[in-house]
Nucleic acid binder design. Structure first.
Length: 272
DNA sequence: AATTTCCGCAACCGCCGCCCT
DNA sequence: GAGGGCGGCGGTTGCGGAAAT
């Protein structure tokens, strides 16, 4: 019954890797490249499961890995990406060069979760923990931009001044996009109205600055630029805010950010 | 100084989806 | 179209070191 094990467990080592095993694995991959993980252990003279070799290489031995602490920038990027992608660690890792899914997953569970809880934000839903108040009102202050404060995409869309009507629904059907069910499920919402167009179809908010003067427009941190650069993607495509917009590969039914989210965020980043 | 508890990280496990036959 | 093989992913576990008692 069931699937046969990926390798003969009786004859494989488990647990921490030794230096010698690492060297063998590195030498083999340098000579033959990645791939064929199932046959690699035998070819490399390792008493390890192929999966174990793959994991060791990807998470620890790869030469392009970035070691050391996560920067604040990476922190925020992870939070934003998690807000939209949920626990899709591999997708998130694809946007953070030199970081692995395992590393990000661990970092999330040990640091970011705590950080968000300290901010009063539910790390799973990205909604304020006392969701009955701030979430409904829609947090929108220069010192705590909606995304950073943990507002969900739903709040971003419906709670902002961008909503053309009181219900928060856009009258333009093209701007309303359903997330894939799995993603929507992760975010704890159903239909999400992500009216996050970059070219603003709406008035920027009126806000009082620290000096007490009322100004219109978005502060630097409030610009919810989900373009490639902010999300750690490469190529600069599909973002009007950088002047170059090549959206040929993007979903025709969506616009602005949503085009980008649809076409790029849910595409395997490793496939360029 | 010894012991216990906590924390972070590497590694494992099982499931899923893609691809090939 | 069905079934099997394989790679990849996400959740979980367990070990080792740090901090607390």
């Amino acid at each position: 019954m069931g699937r046969s094990p990926c390798c003969e467990k009786a004859h494989t080592n488990k647990g921490a890797w030794t230096k010698e095993e690492d060297q063998r694995l590195i030498a083999h991959i340098k000579a033959h490249g990645e791939g064929c993980w199932r046959s690699l252990p035998k070819a490399a003279g390792l008493l390890r499961c192929g999966k174990s070799c793959r994991l060791r290489w990807i998470n620890y031995l790869r030469p392009d890995l970035k070691r050391g602490n996560f920067t604040d920038e990476e922190d925020e990027l992870i939070i934003k990406l998690h807000e939209f992608l949920g626990n899709k660690w591999s997708l998130i890792a694809g946007r953070l060069p030199g970081r692995t899914d395992n590393e990000i997953k661990n970092y999330w569970n040990t640091h970011v979760k705590r950080k968000l809880l300290a901010r009063g934000v539910d790390p799973q839903t990205h909604r304020p923990l006392n969701a009955g108040t701030a979430a409904v009102q829609g947090i929108h202050t220069p010192s705590s931009p909606a995304v950073a404060s943990g507002a969900s995409p739903h709040q971003l869309a419906g709670g902002s001044s961008c909503s053309p009507d009181a219900s928060g629904h856009s009258s333009d059907a093209d701007d309303s996009v359903s997330l894939p069910p799995s993603l929507a499920g992760n975010l704890g919402v159903g239909m999400i109205d992500l009216n996050l167009s970059i070219s603003p179809p709406c008035q920027p908010p009126l806000s009082r600055e620290a000096d007490g003067v009322l100004r219109t427009g978005y502060s630097e941190r409030e610009k919810i630029c989900l373009c490639l650069n902010r999300l750690g993607l490469h190529g600069g495509e599909g973002c009007s805010c950088v002047g170059s917009s090549s959206s040929s590969s993007l979903h025709p039914a969506s616009s602005g950010v949503l085009r980008f989210l649809d076409a790029s965020l849910f595409r395997d980043p490793k496939v360029q």
